[in-house]
Write a protein that binds this DNA or RNA. Structure first.
Lengths: 138, 138
DNA sequence: ATCCTACATTGGACATTGTCTAAGTCAAGA
DNA sequence: TCTTGACTTAGACAATGTCCAATGTAGGAT
């Protein structure tokens, strides 16, 4: 994660205590926290940090592509610090296991021009669902 | 959509003016509205309808499987009345508008066997993202 | 080392989206 | 038509996120 801080400084970021703490929280665990969870954990390390700063910092990290914003359930967004590879998911409908997968071909090409309704289409997210090996034998 | 009203009556629903109006609003097939948009359009037809009733009715339609709840960004959920036909979604990254689209080809075929990790893959959900015509000119 | 200043932070007001409840209303069967 | 329990309503409340003016400060300039 000091890599991250280096990259950010290279992009002209000021390295404030608050930003360091947010980066540290995101680096700590494999769980994807909500903004308020990040704020709570950051406040353990730097009690006076404000919610606004956490939101700002997360938003900046997202727009720099350092962190992925995930919104699965219409409630709070969650932040995924492992944002550095293409992101499709294979989900087990029975047990919920998630794997990252890499589909072949250009997924965007699957949408014909006459189905684009004037949109400038730029990205595509795919979730495959099925039954994983453990669940299909159990 | 009168089909829908018939089905609902068959399930023991009371056919109130409010529910009729919500069903009527949902009976367009291209854009998916947020709950508040449904409320606004319903209020054009029945001015005294309350937000709570719209939320209640949408929630009931979702749990009956008549309408799909779609949450593509962390903002308002949208309601897709087209729950009985396979389709994918095209989302405006700026304003959140959702359209149904129908990609060409077999989307499942895009996932090679060696990327299936032993799963019996059965369905695929695709969300295309881009900028809609209104947002790209504004 | 100190000073400047543009950028960062803060706290709190505000906005959006959704939930809940108590009291009044009404659809539909008897 | 009468009754009754389901439905609707208004508005308070909750959760999440955004915005702003005032204040603080990182890091280059001197």
């Amino acid at each position: 994660m000091s890599d991250l801080l280096e990259r950010l400084r290279g992009r002209g970021w000021r390295l404030t205590a608050q930003r360091r703490v947010v980066a540290e929280v995101l680096d700590g665990d494999h769980v994807h926290y909500t903004a308020d969870e990040v704020h709570a954990k950051a406040a353990d390390l730097l009690p006076e940090i404000s919610r606004a700063t956490v939101y700002n910092t997360l938003g900046e990290l997202v727009s720099l592509g350092e962190v992925l914003e995930v919104s699965t359930d219409g409630r709070a967004k969650r932040y995924d610090p492992n944002a550095h590879h293409a992101h499709q998911h294979l989900v087990c409908s029975r047990c919920g296991t998630i794997r990252d997968v890499h589909p072949a071909g250009d997924l965007l090409a699957g949408l014909p021009a006459e189905e684009r309704f004037g949109f400038q289409v730029s990205t595509v997210e795919v979730t495959y669902r099925g039954i994983c090996p453990s669940c299909s034998t159990a």
